[in-house]
Nucleic acid binder design. Structure first.
Length: 234
DNA sequence: AACCTTGGCAACCGCCTCCGG
DNA sequence: TCCGGAGGCGGTTGCCAAGGT
């Protein structure tokens, strides 16, 4: 939708226009229903018809990166709605993706929801292992901290996606051996999930409870491989 | 011809987030 | 700061046409 759409309170003139439209055409639809119809069918430049091979390829690759974030995937296509992409996936591409083994990474690779999670609501229950992690990290890695509420907090899902993608774009300063060592130390701790199938993608960002009981993320680097220019560029 | 199954698409539902008052 | 309404999103359902039995 166009970004220059007016927001805020309605004025009298706009109210009168809306009343006129409703009186004239007798439309008895909810706002949500109207929006859906507009977004999926009536808006300018909406593309209908068969998906091209190129579009399908974009969907397949995007889904392997983003998971079921249909609006983000649709944003990579010109004129396709999220609903169209979603329907096409379920009716055409899902089977093909599974055959090509493109599905599994979707929910664990770039999806922030797949980051290690804690199964408790009591912060004290995980404080001890969190401190252990901090000690371990500080003794073995050079790292800098990023709080989700500052540099790492996206304001929209799309920004979130872009941000996570940025992590991958700058590359992984640590080595696989570093990560393997790290996870070998980490995994005995309960409540933490090992994502060993996607180590190359979890190098830069993981969430932990820091010493101030704050949920943040660390970027950790092996001392020998640490390159300050990467952070400066970031 | 009648019924059943399947696939494709449009729309609805419910949850979450955002924003304005 | 809080609260309510609207928007955004993904999951799910419903409808209909086409094909099979």
């Amino acid at each position: 939708m166009s970004t220059d759409l007016k927001k805020g309170a309605w004025n009298v003139d706009e109210d009168q226009k809306l009343i006129t439209y409703i009186n004239r055409y007798g439309l008895s639809r909810s706002g949500k229903s109207c929006r859906l119809r507009w977004m999926n069918y009536l808006r300018p430049n909406v593309k209908k018809g068969n998906f091209s091979e190129e579009e399908e390829e974009i969907i397949l690759v995007s889904h392997s990166e983003l998971g079921n974030r249909w609006s983000a995937i649709a944003a990579r296509l010109s004129g396709r709605s999220d609903n169209d992409v979603k329907n096409h996936w379920h009716s055409h591409l899902k089977k093909r993706a599974s055959e090509q083994n493109l599905v599994s990474g979707a929910t664990t690779k770039n999806n922030v929801n797949s980051l290690p999670t804690f199964e408790t609501e009591n912060i004290e229950d995980i404080q001890q292992p969190a401190n252990h992690i901090n000690d371990f990290l500080e003794s073995h890695f050079s790292f800098e901290e990023h709080n989700f509420t500052s540099s790492c907090t996206p304001t929209t899902n799309d920004q979130q996606s872009e941000h996570i993608s940025d992590y991958h774009d700058i590359g992984s300063p640590g080595t696989i051996d570093d990560l393997r060592y790290f996870w070998d130390q980490l995994c005995p701790l309960e409540n933490l999930e090992r994502i060993n199938n996607h180590m190359d993608h979890v190098t830069s960002a993981h969430s932990f409870i820091d010493s101030n009981n704050y949920l943040g993320s660390y970027n950790f680097y092996n001392d020998n491989d640490y390159d300050s220019s990467i952070l400066e560029a970031w």
